[in-house]
């Protein structure tokens, strides 16, 4: 058995955290080959070759793969699929875009957001906003799946895998990239941060979201948000934590002005320590918080920031 793992490459750099967590998830299934595809991908490939547990790295460096459009990347994976029993990727938005396409082209099912690998055919995954965990067994000859990175630790450093080139596949030429709107930030990345501070509708405005950001910066934390906060324009879309946003499991999660809807809990309830700050003592978030503080966020959060 052998595994082809799509490494997460953004602008030529490897997202080591997501990729190394995925390596740990699949390494029991066979030799792991990491595929690094991008307009520039050599340095990402080098970084991937050092992850413990990686047997081989394939680099597909071609302008075709520069913006991770689904069609060419899926065609590339399909062209390589013959050699592998398992084809996997960390469950990033890129992989969620690409892997179902790969599966359909291979006429197999896809399994999204796998949270545990039981054996070569059997996997666990959360369903119903994490209110149930399903154990599923696949009858397909090839298994195609994405991995919920929050459920795995990252593989360590110290590998020395061989790196070789993969030939580009024919471009289906169905879509073109136009532009990216990506905010640069010095803060840790949400899904790999050790600490996360999230704000909800209770924060009230884009301007007051600064209260959340100041606490986050004091803690060296990433900033998250509820859907309500994103929909209201207080925070950008890529900060959304939840069933349909990002899934996080940091050591510390601070929820401020968030009521605790099931869709939000689905994205953060595996955090080690949860703190909730809310003025409503009946808010459901308190049912899962380790430490709850009932109070107005506009006074308590600045006080907390100051006292840390």
């Amino acid at each position: 058995m052998a595994v082809l793992l799509l490494g997460e490459v953004t602008n030529g750099e490897l997202n080591r955290d997501a990729t190394a967590k995925a390596v740990n998830a699949v390494k029991a299934l066979g030799d792991v080959t990491v595929l690094c595809a991008g307009a520039s991908a050599k340095s990402a490939a080098e970084a991937a070759s050092k992850i413990t547990g990686v047997a081989k790295v394939l680099v597909a460096e071609n302008a075709l793969y520069g913006h991770r459009l689904a069609e060419p990347t899926a065609a590339l994976i399909v062209s390589l699929a013959g050699d592998y029993s398992h084809i996997a990727a960390p469950a990033t938005t890129d992989a969620k875009n690409i892997m179902p396409r790969v599966a359909a082209l291979l006429d197999v099912m896809v399994l999204s957001d796998v949270s545990a690998v039981i054996d070569a055919d059997t996997f666990e995954r959360p369903v119903y906003a994490g209110n149930a965990i399903q154990t599923v067994k696949s009858r397909d000859a090839k298994k195609v799946f994405t991995i919920r990175t929050a459920s795995f630790d990252a593989a360590g450093e110290g590998g020395a895998a061989s790196v070789s080139d993969a030939a580009a596949a024919t471009d289906p030429a169905l879509s073109v990239w136009v532009s990216d709107e990506v905010a640069a930030s010095d803060r840790p990345e949400l899904t790999s941060a050790k600490r996360v501070v999230s704000g909800g509708r209770g924060v009230g405005s884009k301007e007051s979201f600064e209260i959340i950001e100041k606490l986050a910066d004091k803690l060296g934390a990433a900033v998250g948000a509820s859907r309500a906060a994103v929909d209201s324009g207080y925070a950008p879309n890529d900060w959304q934590v939840g069933q349909t946003g990002k899934v996080v499991a940091p050591e510390l999660y601070v929820a401020v002005g968030i009521s605790g809807a099931i869709q939000h809990l689905a994205g953060m309830k595996d955090s080690k320590v949860i703190v909730a700050i809310n003025k409503d003592e009946e808010a459901p978030i308190f049912q899962i918080a380790d430490f709850g503080l009932v109070g107005d966020l506009f006074s308590t959060v600045p006080e907390l920031t100051e006292k840390l």
Partner: peptide, 13 residues
């Protein structure tokens, strides 16, 4: 499109 880092715009035929 809503992606991990923010937004991406593409044109599809």
């Amino acid at each position: 499109r809503e992606v991990d880092g923010g937004l991406q715009t593409i044109e599809v035929t």
